[in-house]
């Protein structure tokens, strides 16, 4: 899987690329608009991470170019300019997702995964992990072909954990992921514990192995 990260913050770009590399993606970095435009015309990427504010112009130009060239890349806008206008404009131009800065890498990872899954398999792909199967389109979870009854939050939590499998995820990032637009309103992250507990119980009741490891004081990990 090839990704293009268009981001002018060097430190941020390197960290993101490093993280995504451990997820098994090959990540290229473009730190300005000129570079980015050259790269998207020459190569095909599975997913483009796009910062709007670039030193030499507006990142949305890249989106326009991609659209003109008829390329099918999934585009996630990562922007410090969290304005409604940009969000609407970006999504209108064909971006798949919009992630305001700052964000958790686990959140970014999950979104990249979701975008690629949607684009590559038109959303019909099934995520399987040992005895566990997640049908992302039907939003159904089954263990050994037995369908599980999960709440919406439990389902999102499972998907998030599995998308970041092998990785330590902080309580904060889980809480923010589950709360979506309301993440700013979070006062404490203890509710994550209750959801994890319920999810673990449902999984083990249906005969699924216990893959959720508690990282004491910090968060959780889906053991790969």
């Amino acid at each position: 899987m090839k990704l293009l990260l268009i981001e002018d913050g060097k430190q941020l770009a390197e960290s993101i690329a490093e993280y995504l590399a451990t997820e098994g993606y090959h990540c290229e970095i473009a730190s300005n608009l000129e570079d980015a435009l050259a790269k998207v015309t020459l190569h095909d990427y599975d997913c483009v991470l796009l910062d709007i504010t670039l030193p030499d112009g507006n990142g949305l130009t890249v989106l326009e170019r991609l659209k003109k060239d008829g390329k099918m890349e999934g585009v996630i806008i990562i922007s410090a300019k969290d304005s409604l206008d940009d969000r609407i404009k970006g999504l209108k131009l064909g971006a798949d997702d919009y992630l305001p800065k700052p964000f958790h890498l686990s959140e970014l990872g999950a979104r990249v995964e979701a975008v690629i899954r949607r684009n590559k398999f038109q959303g019909s792909s099934k995520i399987t992990f040992k005895e566990l199967t997640i049908d992302a389109q039907a939003q159904l979870v089954s263990v050994n072909d037995n369908t599980l009854q999960l709440t919406r939050k439990e389902y999102n939590l499972l998907l998030f954990l599995v998308a970041n499998k092998g990785r330590i995820i902080s309580k904060t990032s889980i809480a923010e992921h589950l709360s979506g637009d309301m993440a700013d309103m979070l006062d404490n992250h203890t509710f994550v514990y209750a959801h994890i507990k319920n999810l673990k119980k449902k999984l083990s009741d249906s005969g699924c192995g216990d893959y959720v490891k508690t990282i004491y004081g910090f968060g959780y990990q889906w053991e790969a």
């Binding site: 993280y19 410090a80 700052p102």
Partner: peptide, 12 residues
């Protein structure tokens, strides 16, 4: 954003 991302990387 850089700080947040570095923290996440550190945790891994």
């Amino acid at each position: 954003a850089a700080f947040q991302v570095k923290l996440d990387t550190l945790a891994q």
